[in-house]
Amino acid sequence: MAMIEGLTHLGMGKLDDGRTLLPRVLPGEEVSVDQDGTVRIVTPSVDRVSPPCRHFKTCGGCAMQHASDAFVADWKQEIVRKAIAAQGLNTVFRDIATSPAQSRRRAKFAGQRTKKGVMLGFYAKGTDTIIAVPDCQLITPGLHDARAALEALIMFAASRKSHVSFTVTETSVGPDISVETEKELTSQLRMELAVFAQMHGVSRLVWQDEVIVTMNPPAQDFGGVSAVPPAGAFLQATKHGEAVLRDAVIEITQGAKSIVDLFAGSGTFALPLSKTAEIHAVEGEADMIAALDRGWREGKNLKRVTSETRDLFRRPLEPDELRKFDAAVIDPPRAGADAQIATLAASDVKVIAMVSCNPVTFARDAKMLVAHGFTLNWVQVVDQFRWSPHVEVVASFTRK
């Protein structure tokens, strides 16, 4: 017998021996571990629930379906709280916002041809084995409906010896599909794929970065302003999560007449913010900036949006460039943005809305801002990746 003392930030249970980590267990549970590694729950936690997905144990894509929603919410809040406390900071935490089941609008599927037909699903954790997941509880009904098209597409894209990957994004005009495959794209195949896209209502079909056909531009609605992101470009995981982050950013920057949006992507925040303020959007990927610019030009009743393609890791905006802005929005990748945060800290900007997908780098960057006179007013945890260890944060910083 052994006792689970706690969970790591990845959801692994820590045994009381101080060394062993076990999956799918909860703090306070008594467990036994067989010689073959099988874990048996002897005394279950009151927070243990029946997993809502029948693929939970075989798929491996979800880490926390055996825990109650309330437990997961508290656990994710605590992950962020510990990261902030480790930097000597303290702040107010707003209630966590958790996206509902069946709300993930993008997924990466794997497929292969078999003797009996095709196999479509996700890779089992840590393997190259494809597990069929027809009842996945994460993805939207629209992505479920796209499965038939993907299964048909496997016959075009995969051989018996190689797998194929599909990145699929739900849109209002049909699935937006990007194909990763080793199969050569011939002129004949290009024509067949165009017919396939028309037959299956595919909005856009991309083959190894080459756009085969766009039946209908796969636009995304960013707070009432539409834009067509490049195929596979960054997109918030759920519409619910995006709305929570957007509303928080709008609240934080309320009253600002000029805002700089750093790591702007395809316009998640810049486009809705342009309803009330002039925006300067900066992003390292030129095709995302082009999508943002097109979205603004085709929008109605928007204030001026200027845009710039720039590597903010190598060339952050300097304090003199930031002087003309009332507020800044920054949504960096997982590595954070210590160089850009340093110039923001040294600038005259008084208001910062920071969005982060990594509590550790968020806390590091927050510490630098606080050290230069900012107040960390509040933090909100946003759980777009339900049943996973992934955590996102939006936070308000101001200084007098």
Rank of each mutant, 00 (worst) to 15 (best):
M1Q: 13
L7A: 08
G11A: 07
L15H: 11
L15K: 04
R24H: 14
S32D: 14
R40L: 09
T43E: 14
P44L: 10
S45N: 01
S45Q: 09
V49Y: 11
P51R: 06
P51N: 09
H55K: 02
H55Y: 11
T58V: 14
G61N: 04
C62T: 05
H66V: 12
A67W: 05
S68P: 05
A73K: 12
K76M: 09
A86T: 02
V92F: 09
S99W: 01
S103I: 00
S103F: 00
T127E: 10
C136P: 02
Q137L: 11
L143K: 04
D145R: 15
A146M: 05
R147F: 05
A149C: 04
L153Q: 01
L153K: 02
A157D: 10
S159G: 15
S162A: 14
H163M: 07
V164Q: 02
V164E: 03
E170H: 06
E170I: 03
E180K: 11
K183M: 14
F196Q: 09
S203D: 09
S203N: 04
S203F: 05
L205G: 04
E210W: 02
E210G: 06
N216F: 07
D221A: 04
S226W: 11
A231T: 10
A237T: 13
R246V: 11
G255D: 12
S266Q: 11
G267L: 06
T268G: 12
P272H: 01
S274A: 15
E285K: 13
R294W: 00
N301E: 11
L302H: 04
K303H: 14
V305K: 11
S307A: 12
E308R: 12
L312E: 12
P316V: 12
P316N: 05
E318L: 15
P319Q: 10
E321I: 00
L322V: 09
D331I: 08
D331Q: 06
P332S: 08
D338M: 12
D348L: 10
M354P: 00
V355A: 12
S356D: 04
N358R: 06
M368Q: 14
V370N: 09
V370S: 02
H372G: 00
Q380T: 11
D383W: 05
D383F: 02
H390L: 06
E392F: 01
K400F: 03
